[in-house]
Design a protein around this nucleic acid. Structure first.
Lengths: 193, 193
DNA sequence: GCCGTGGTATACCGACCTGTGTACCAACGT
DNA sequence: ACGTTGGTACACAGGTCGGTATACCACGGC
């Protein structure tokens, strides 16, 4: 009842499913393959998850989340999010934002995984908004919306191109937008420019 | 041998397939359904397309392309692209950029439709780069990359949220980035701000 | 000791998938 | 007048899908 890493079997299956769904697509990967790759019988898989849809939702939550900076000034944290994104993308064979990929394949808006995506995406935008306010932005609502779009763009571009140039461009653009709304006087460490 | 609108039957089938693939997903829509929706037998569908993969590639080309402004100053054309995008999204039940959706479902990088996507995406970036140079940008390469990321982000956000706010945010951000690189002296019609 | 829990192995079900085979038919060019 | 082209109608092959049934087994707590 334990996986290879000692974690509960349920989590092990979900992680294997997440890796397969992400790399090969949700519809292409069958439950048989997930079970085989997890060294588990299909019967036991269905003992932990009532259906494939439930497995999909669990896999979405088991995906390695993109880290967000927890320390430093608000400005540093915002820009640091883009830098961490870049580092995250170099580590994985990137195919694009998991949220976007899952959303693209799950057409039914009532699918449990879809609802999950919406809450997660909302959280990210709220994070940007709070940081924008802390950085002293003139209009945190607008700025956070812009940063979020940039972030989405950087994630989406990776789905179609293998390069990291879009991420670097997003970081540069984020810095410009941030500087435009949060003047240097409101910042503590105005090191460059 | 003609479709309802008088166009060749092959194009009619491709358009129907494009609509179905886009709204419901490539893998969940079978050729039977495409044939039925196009009021055509499966047999004749396979007379025009050697396989479903070929149909997918044809459907991708048959999708209604996002219009790009053909007239006006370079600056107006760039910003106009975002405005046209907004208008385009209001007209359709938007589910996200077709390129992203198709790319998400087609895992095999050698799929004919995937190769098609890469060339089309490259064209869009080149368009931005040419316009950026015309607008007198200090570094058209970087600016076009930033604009392209913004565009991608605006398209991707629609895949997860139903609103148009991200598009408006992208437009505003594009204006800021553009003004930062192309000073007012290089522009002819500096109407506002 | 013994039984329930949670695993294995394997076979199976019905539905649906892409793709083909066969037979017939209507229009059109020559 | 006739044959080719391109359509219809329908059946079916071969495979895979999600999900279930059956039978067996290892272990741990009471």
């Amino acid at each position: 009842m334990r996986g290879p890493a000692g974690q509960p079997l349920r989590d092990h299956i979900a992680e294997v499913a997440a890796a397969l769904f992400y790399s090969d697509g949700i519809h292409v990967v069958g439950v048989d393959r997930v079970a085989a790759e997890a060294s588990v019988t299909k019967r036991t898989l269905y003992r932990h998850f009532p259906s494939k849809d439930a497995l999909i939702a669990a896999a979405l939550q088991a995906a390695p989340p993109i880290a967000f900076p927890r320390e430093g000034s608000a400005r540093d944290r915002i820009l640091g999010a883009f830098e961490l994104l870049e580092r995250f993308l170099t580590g994985t064979r990137y195919r694009g934002c998991p949220f976007i990929i899952y959303a693209a394949e799950l057409t039914d808006s009532k699918h449990p995984a879809r609802i999950l995506i919406e809450t997660l995406v909302y959280k990210r935008r709220a994070w940007f908004k709070t940081r924008a306010a802390e950085a002293g932005a003139a209009d945190p609502e607008i700025l956070s919306e812009q940063l979020d779009v940039l972030f989405d763009g950087a994630l989406a571009s990776g789905a179609k191109r293998g390069e990291l140039k879009p991420v670097a461009a997003a970081l540069a653009a984020a810095r410009i937008l941030l500087d435009g709304q949060a003047p240097a006087s409101a910042r503590r460490n105005s090191s460059k420019r």
